[in-house]
């Protein structure tokens, strides 16, 4: 068999037509792929997107809950004032609570005035998005904390935008662990 005038040893089938040659190129290139580094970089990007999205969902949930909380608090206050009752003392409400430090939310940089602290219950999953470990909520027998929720204080400006959040535990329940989180 002559190629360039030289006798060529057969390495598999020879290819006569162009279509056969193109098929051979196609088969030969079938195993070619991008380097593993490319896949690793892209997978890291996907994980970043996933984490960012989870955090954004948690923040939006908190903000929405805060808005509802503000509306609820205003309604209760109005009703209380109309009845002439004094608001309950803070010590009665909080008991032996331990709270984490405040975590800034997306709009924490916005100027705030007449901020209010709104107590509400948020999904326990929200803890993870702020880097806290999941904790067993002990509601101190008040029955206010459900199995899948944890209490949180949300700092809300008069514009209704949540600026920061802290999570609440109770001594004897998750309070010790929350205290540890606060020390970290």
């Amino acid at each position: 068999m002559q190629v360039g005038g030289a006798e060529v040893e057969k390495e598999g089938d020879s290819v006569g037509s162009l279509s056969e040659a193109l098929k051979a190129v196609r088969e030969d290139a079938a195993a070619l792929k991008a380097s593993d580094d490319v896949e690793a970089r892209l997978r890291a990007e996907v994980r970043t997107i996933g984490r960012t999205r989870a955090r954004r969902v948690a923040v939006l949930s908190l903000a929405a809950a805060a808005l509802l909380g503000v509306a609820g608090a205003m309604t209760v206050r109005r009703a209380t004032l109309e009845r002439g009752d004094a608001p309950p003392a803070a010590s009665e409400r909080s008991g032996a609570e331990v709270a984490t430090a405040f975590f800034p939310l997306d709009y924490s940089g916005m100027p705030v005035s007449n901020a209010q602290l709104v107590r509400l219950e948020v999904p326990r999953a929200a803890l993870a998005s702020f880097g806290l470990t999941s904790i067993d909520v002990h509601d101190g027998g008040s029955g206010t904390a459900g199995g899948g929720t944890v209490q949180a204080d949300v700092l809300v400006g008069e514009d209704g935008v949540a600026r920061a959040v802290r999570f609440i535990g109770r001594i004897g329940g998750d309070g010790h662990r929350l205290a540890q989180e606060r020390e970290r």
Binding site: V3, G12, L18
Partner: peptide, 21 residues
């Protein structure tokens, strides 16, 4: 000619076609 690579081994054809492309 359709049989432009007549008699050429597979490995040589692959190389030649890649370069030609």
């Amino acid at each position: 000619d359709e049989e432009v690579l007549d008699g050429v081994s597979r490995a040589e054809a692959v190389l030649a076609v890649r370069e030609a492309i």
